[in-house]
């Protein structure tokens, strides 16, 4: 509404300063550091240019390859399962049931708490040898499992912590579902369309913008998972939960190899950027932005 460009820039000035100081500068600095042999304990002036040294080291680093594999496995299991489950529960909730508000709250609580250290600590005890899950297993007549000590199971506990937080994605799906005009359903029913047909021709296409939003947010978050593996498993056993953010942290702050850690962080950045770009580029083929505008806007 205002045409005063000076005031406009004054209002967004805090953002511009912050962008330059706390985002763009560190972003470029980590790119430069990734070509150096810089060690955390040295003065910054002592950093030496290494060329592609850190990147060739990455190419031959089995720990990095392992971490990369585990990270992809984690993301590819977590994100689709979480989205599918969030969508499923949103569907179950999206009917004129009594107590929908209560269930929505109950399912949302884990998303509020789930990122905390307290919950990661709880998870450790839930899956410990004498923990809750094994007690239930034994009570049901099964054998206790070594959840945190067995490479095949350890990643599963970290995945489950993330799945447990499906509530935030579900709330977004639910809002999307409730935005679909009911006259569309009524018209389809009068035309004799079946439930499955209605789902695939009306509900799903109109929901694609919300699916797209949730997908991007979940992918970006999942690639950055740190608390879960750091606290529940410490990255083990046998590096089976050694996700890339954990490796970056340890390289920088435990082994002091800042140059190498910076290169790893750029690898992670490029992977996330690639997925985001593919998602945005593919959006025009599957995300349906109808010409209807919701009312009240």
């Amino acid at each position: 509404m205002y045409d005063n460009r000076v005031s406009g820039y004054l209002y967004i000035a805090p953002f511009l300063i912050g962008l330059a100081t706390f985002t763009l500068f560190p972003f470029l600095a980590s790119f430069l550091l990734s070509f150096s042999d810089y060690q955390l304990q040295d003065p910054v002036e002592q950093a030496r240019f290494l060329g592609l040294g850190n990147y060739t080291q990455m190419a031959g680093d089995d720990t990095f390859h392992g971490s990369l594999g585990v990270t992809f496995l984690y993301v590819f299991i977590t994100v689709p399962l979480k989205l599918a489950f969030a969508l499923f529960i949103a569907f179950v909730l999206n009917f004129k049931l009594r107590g929908i508000g209560f269930f929505r709250t109950a399912y949302y609580v884990p998303s509020i708490l789930g990122g905390s250290v307290a919950i990661a600590v709880l998870w450790r005890y839930v899956f410990a040898g004498d923990g809750l899950i094994n007690q239930v297993l034994v009570w049901a007549g099964g054998e206790p499992l070594n959840w945190l000590g067995e490479p095949a199971y350890a990643l599963f506990t970290v995945v489950l912590l993330r799945l447990w937080q499906f509530g935030s994605a579900m709330v977004v799906f639910l809002a999307g579902l409730q935005n679909i005009p009911t006259d569309l359903y009524e018209a389809a029913t009068i035309d004799g369309a079946g439930k499955a047909h209605i789902f695939f021709t009306i509900t799903l296409p109109l929901l694609t913008p919300v699916i797209f939003f949730n997908f991007i947010m979940q992918i970006v978050q999942a690639f950055q998972e740190f608390n879960g593996p750091y606290i529940i498993t410490g990255g083990g056993p046998l590096k089976s939960t050694y996700l890339l953010p954990l490796m970056i942290y340890e390289e920088a702050f435990k082994y002091f190899n800042v140059g190498y850690a910076a290169a790893l962080s750029w690898a992670l950045f490029l992977i996330i950027a690639l997925f985001t770009i593919i998602a945005f580029a593919s959006a025009k083929y599957w995300v349906f932005y109808g010409n209807e505008r919701e009312d009240g806007e």
Partner: peptide, 23 residues
């Protein structure tokens, strides 16, 4: 600027972590 702001939402924090620490 607005596009850059939205892009920072998607930028992984770990790529900024080390230089921020040094700063």
């Amino acid at each position: 600027w607005f596009a850059l702001m939205v892009a920072t939402i998607l930028l992984p924090k770990s790529v900024l972590l080390i230089p921020q620490y040094l700063m």
